[in-house]
């Protein structure tokens, strides 16, 4: 009993140190090359004219993500496997080639023509989209409309 309790506490403590944020020691130029191939291709394809300002390898606990700052100020975050996680176009339009067709259609059908997507983020429950009119819309991973979020 006593040993088990101690073991449990030690395990919890260990977990605590594992989740320690780790950014220090990042080398910006080396990080660029550590970006997964498909992420690099993703950037080339959807942001052909943009250059990388810096890349942060973010080891937050058990999850590793790559945060890319483009020289235009846009921020793109990738999963470890290279897939995009979040695109923040900083009030400019997120390239339509990235946005799932269903969402694109929903936006087009429900808003004025001058409304566009400025930010898109994958969540565990689906996809969250921020529009240029400050409205936040939530969809399922399949792009089905869920709700408006104020």
């Amino acid at each position: 009993m006593r040993q088990q309790v101690i073991a449990l506490i030690l395990a919890l403590g260990l977990l605590g140190t594992l989740t320690h944020y780790s950014v220090a020691g990042n080398n910006m130029s080396k990080n660029e090359s550590r970006l997964p191939k498909n992420s690099q291709e993703f950037l080339k394809k959807h942001f052909p004219s943009e250059k990388i300002s810096y890349v942060i390898v973010d080891k937050d606990g058990l999850q590793t993500t790559f945060e890319v700052m483009l020289t235009s100020g846009k921020e793109i975050e990738f999963y470890k496997n290279g897939e995009w996680k979040e695109i923040d176009a900083k009030k400019t339009a997120v390239p339509q080639t990235i946005i799932p067709a269903n969402i694109l259609k929903h936006v087009k059908d429900n808003f004025d023509n001058d409304v566009y997507v400025v930010q898109i983020e994958k969540k565990f429950w689906g996809i969250e989209v921020e529009l240029s009119n400050k409205l936040e819309v939530e969809y399922t991973s399949g792009g089905k409309f869920l709700r408006y979020d104020n």
Partner: peptide, 23 residues
Amino acid sequence: DEVMDETDDRLLNNKGLVVHRML
């Protein structure tokens, strides 16, 4: 740890903002 992280997180966030403005 959490409190330190909080500070570092804010710095990291500030970097994003400052660099964005700088660019």
